[in-house]
Amino acid sequence: MSNEKVVIDNVSYSYKEDKKTQESLDAIKDVNFTVNEGEIVTIVGPSGCGKSTLLDIISGMLRPTKGEVKIDGNRVTGPGKDLGIVQQGYALFPWRTVLENIEFGLEIRQIPQKERREIAKKYIRKVGLGGYENKYPDSLSGGMKQRVSIARAMSYKPKLLIMDEPFAALDPRTREVMQNELLYLSRSEKPTILFVTHDVREAVLLSDKIVVMTGGPGSVKAIIDVKFPEERKIEDIVTLKEFDELEKKIRKLYGNPNEIPNDAVF
């Protein structure tokens, strides 16, 4: 019980779509799951399944119509200081150097300047960007930008790190490199991560737990535990039989893209 870092308790969100008929539309319905401390939990689901709405509720930007989100036992009522976020578009401040970007979260928490520098420099090295301290984001590649984004979000050790399709904009090779790096980082830091992706394979590779969501309205179809060895490397995992089985299982739940609906006419 004390291991639970984030509890999503029966969360629903509906909004009035049509002002005339006052009909409300459910964006998400009865979502239940927990993220334990140090876990990587991945939400997998098709577009429009309400993932963004759920993330907005967890980060306090949106109030659920029903249910609640608790972080460390405290109910989330608005944006707070517990979270970190890494987004698909990196969202780096172009007018700040790499170092200054990483310091942003520390500035907000009023860490004194000298300490801030030290911590930021430490994280630059952790993500392998030593030497790039004074570069501006514009001169970095996509993968490097994402590393800065990760360093920025981790530097103040948030209670929950939200990663919203962070590697989706990267080329496949860089994506694999980043996945490995995330695993490596998470081993030393043990952050609590809520990861969102479309990529079933990525979910199986990275997670301790996978939450499969379906759309219309968004709800949890299944929660699957993933048990690969701690010290896993991606090239080793993909050879395991369990990996294939898990991937197939989730694809089935997720909906097979190769299936053509009965009433489709081509």
């Binding site: 980060s59 517990d82 976020i85 969202a91």
Partner: peptide, 9 residues
């Protein structure tokens, strides 16, 4: 950028 900043506190 605003979302990132707000979410980071």
């Amino acid at each position: 950028l605003i979302k990132a900043a707000r979410t980071m506190g």
